[in-house]
Design a protein around this nucleic acid. Structure first.
Lengths: 340, 340
DNA sequence: GTGAAAGCGCTAACAG
DNA sequence: CTGTTAGCGCTTTCAC
């Protein structure tokens, strides 16, 4: 097998415990021996066996990240943030994708629970009851969901309010909401904020179109309902739904944004792939990943105090994109622009 | 801590070795005892500690998956395929993202190498020299790259040929290629196929525009060059570049596909977010993930024979999308279609 | 077919 | 400050 701590000890002429100490608690060892050990470690290319260490410390040096769908760039960004921080702290991360299926989510969490020091559940789709069971298995941090007193990171849910203020400022008086998955905590909160705004502003008519799959197809479905509703503006649960809406509305001969305005959530890259670029709520999701990892690691490292000041609620931004589709990059050359 | 093999043994009234055997080699134990043990296992909710097992067997029951960018849906799909198979075989998977940066790729592989039974490197960006070192660390399977005799899964690279035949059939005689990252094996192969076609068909003029970042911005860059080249059709390294091309060309007043045709590679979801839907080469990437996982697992399980018949080269399909943007889902209702 | 015992590579008391 | 000694939870000879 590979080079073990014993090889290093022999080569450095010390005992294995000294090697162990030199690596895990460098301050408990004489500078001279520590340096000697370190040089041997480098020379032999020794890398401690995490398994063996974990067996005794009860810590595996790994965390689990559970997300609904790896193929959705939203979660890819979160994952990158988590990895960035975990790696910096010497942790490895298992990623478990559950295909937006609560029962798979449950299975994956349970199978991972025994092998990791902690778990980050991003946008969990489980019911509260099941979530309660799952979060009791192992130290857990939630992202995009609040539940009991489980530590969590969520986005400031003032996003919907900003969107609605923006739209009413533009003169819209009939606004529809094309929602996301029922099980989504974010969806429920957006829906509530939507309703509340309606109650507070009697002059604006607010229409909920229902729940749709959080993808392009969901938006296509929602479009026909939106049109029938008579709304002049549609707020979508996310950008993918917004793009589906856009496509279908245009296909039905409705011009966007002239006849109907559309606003999304997330500010994923594709929101700039269409003209005009989509107006959306930017949610710094990579940052959310970082914060979630930081929070989990701080919990793992300091069993006593969860004192560290990690923001639990991340600010979001309304990104209003110009509808006038002007050249964003460089001026058009004069002269012929058509191909041969 | 959790329930251990000793608890099970005590509860079932047998020795720990019997429990161990009952679980790992059920045929080496009397049916009666096996069943007894199994029922206790279920009742106590016992789950063997992978670390401890790994310590002795030298196998961790985990594999690593190294990809350039988690945020790119292409790799998300591959990851899902890998996970699907790994999970089914009882393996966990570490995913390591290296941000398209070869030096990070190297670091990640090295740090993972000691903790996993095998690694799948998808679309590696390292040089051949470095790749040689990396693949010698631990059993490795390559995806989207061939190197020496390292087992690999790649897509049939006849895709470019099909695209070019398609375009010439449509009457194009001047065709440009907007390439991907220099380090990409796929890019180099597409580029070669592109050149070869030119040599074989003197009547068609083929123009390489260069290498571009494999994203929307890369396509925007390429668009101005494409226009200046006089080509009437542009083949893009991937769909994201194709979409960037599309956007920029339209902005410059060129209509697509009337004046310039665009074809992409990958058939990612966004390729249907635009009108007309993008014509593209479909690469079944989730399937690639599955095959890569199967290949790695078969290598790990059978040290002797890599006999299993896993296809090493996966077929691709040209997806020609209709330009006429007809209603794809349901017929438009008669009557007013504009909103209030 | 089953149990006892010996470790896998490492860390954590405990003496020195 | 350093070495010796027990194990962590499990698999695997080797006897019985």
């Amino acid at each position: 097998m590979a080079v073990t701590i014993r090889d290093v000890a022999k080569e450095a002429g010390v005992s294995i415990s000294t090697v162990s100490r030199a690596l895990s608690s460098p301050n408990k060892v004489a500078d001279a021996t520590r340096e000697a050990v370190e040089s041997v470690v480098v020379r032999l290319g020794y890398r401690p066996n995490k398994n063996a260490r974990g067996l005794i410390t009860g810590r595996s040096g790994t965390i689990g990240l559970i997300i609904p769908d790896l193929e959705n760039p939203y979660f890819g960004a979160v994952s990158k943030g988590v990895q960035e921080r975990a790696r910096a702290a010497g942790y490895s991360v298992y990623i478990g994708d559950f295909d937006e299926d609560p029962s798979i989510e449950s299975t994956v969490v349970r199978s991972l629970a025994k092998q990791v020091d902690g778990i980050i559940m991003c946008s969990p789709r489980s019911t509260d009851v099941e979530l309660g069971r799952l979060t009791s298995l192992v130290p857990t941090v939630l992202a995009n969901r609040k539940f009991a007193d489980v530590p969590s990171i969520v986005f400031d849910n003032g996003g919907m309010l900003r969107v609605l203020r923006h739209l009413t400022a533009l003169g819209h008086t009939t606004i529809a909401y094309a929602g996301g998955p029922e099980q989504s905590w974010s969806h429920r909160h957006r829906s509530e904020a939507f309703q509340e705004f309606g109650e507070a502003h009697g002059t604006t008519e607010l229409i909920e179109l229902g729940s749709f799959p959080p993808n392009f197809g969901g938006g296509v479905q929602a479009a026909d309902l939106a049109l029938a509703s008579g709304a002049t503006a549609v707020v979508a649960y996310n950008d993918l739904i917004a793009l589906g809406l856009l496509d279908r509305l245009r296909e039905r001969g409705v011009s966007v944004p002239e006849q109907i305005s559309i606003v999304g959530f997330d500010n994923v890259a594709v929101s700039t792939f269409v003209r005009p670029n989509l107006t959306t709520i930017d949610q710094p999701r990579k940052h959310m990943g970082r914060m979630a990892a930081d929070l989990l690691l701080s919990i793992l490292d300091a069993d006593d105090a969860e004192s560290t000041h990690i923001p639990r609620q991340l600010p979001v931004d309304l990104v209003v994109r110009q509808s006038t589709g002007e050249a964003p990059l460089s001026r058009r050359a004069t002269g012929t622009t058509t191909a041969s």
